[in-house]
């Protein structure tokens, strides 16, 4: 090889790598922006969940639920809309790891809301359609409306539902304190059905296994609460029952810990 050739190749290599640098930076930046949005979604969703947990104590639970729904739509518009814009035209699975945590927390909040509102399990279609937006397309003239969305893979939806069960457990325990003695029995039946569903799936992923394990523990706590309710219900005045439930291990304390951590 002649000396000239060598020099040429040298500059060629560095030219190529300069281009690669741009491409890598561009992708890393997008990833970072999505991680940030996802973190915001997690925080806001947790706040909505805490708000709904408090609805168990108040007699204005409808009002609290409306507030929670406002929070949830706020998350959709302020966090998921920019996320959908970032993801437009990309393979949704490429960046899933960046926003998976936020998405699961959001699904937990939404499904909790729907449970409290109407005792229904929110469907995947519903979750997906909440996260589908119409946006003005810039590249066509005149501007047209197009649908952009944050893709919700079924496995993320299921993982979000698995998290919901933990919230239901806390809700059931808390609601005893406010005098709602039917709630634990309702939740207990609901959790049993969910657990049955998850167990019928068999091996899905390690993450799922971990959550199902937690679900089983939550169910046991609610079952213990139902048992106590049955046994002690006749002998203690209602307003004192809450103190009994404070001694159910893990239930109240884990809720408090999590709240301290985040707020």
């Amino acid at each position: 090889m002649l000396a000239e050739d060598v020099d040429q190749q040298k500059s060629h290599i560095s030219q190529c790598f300069q281009e690669y640098q741009k491409e890598l930076d561009c992708r890393h930046d997008k990833h970072e922006r999505l991680v940030k949005l996802s973190r915001d979604v997690t925080i806001e969703s947790k706040r909505a969940i805490f708000l709904m947990q408090r609805s168990s104590g108040s007699n204005k639970s409808d009002e609290v639920l409306d507030q929670a729904w406002q929070k949830i739509t706020g998350i959709q518009q302020q966090k998921f809309l920019p996320m959908a814009k970032e993801l437009h035209g990309e393979d949704p699975h490429q960046f899933l790891r960046a926003y998976s945590a936020g998405l699961q927390e959001y699904i937990e909040a939404v499904s909790f809301y729907h449970y409290l509102k109407s005792k229904t399990l929110v469907s995947l279609e519903q979750v997906q359609s909440d996260l589908t937006f119409t946006a003005q397309s810039d590249d066509t003239e005149p501007p047209q409306e197009k649908a952009i969305s944050v893709h919700v893979p079924p496995s993320e939806y299921m993982l979000g539902l698995a998290d919901l069960t933990g919230e239901l457990m806390r809700f059931a325990i808390n609601s005893v304190g406010s005098g709602n003695l039917d709630c634990p029995n309702d939740v207990c039946a609901y959790l049993r059905r969910m657990l049955g569903g998850f167990e019928s799936l068999g091996q899905v992923s390690r993450e799922m296994n971990r959550k199902v394990y937690t679900l089983r523990q939550s169910l046991q706590k609610v079952e213990a609460a139902c048992y106590t309710l049955q046994i002690r219900g006749s002998e203690i005045p209602k307003h004192m029952l809450k103190d009994v439930f404070r001694s159910v291990p893990g239930a109240e304390s884990s809720y408090m810990e999590e709240r301290d951590l985040d707020e």
Partner: peptide, 13 residues
Amino acid sequence: SAERIAEVFADFQ
């Protein structure tokens, strides 16, 4: 509600 849960899990399965 029980039916809905069964449906969700069957879909995912």
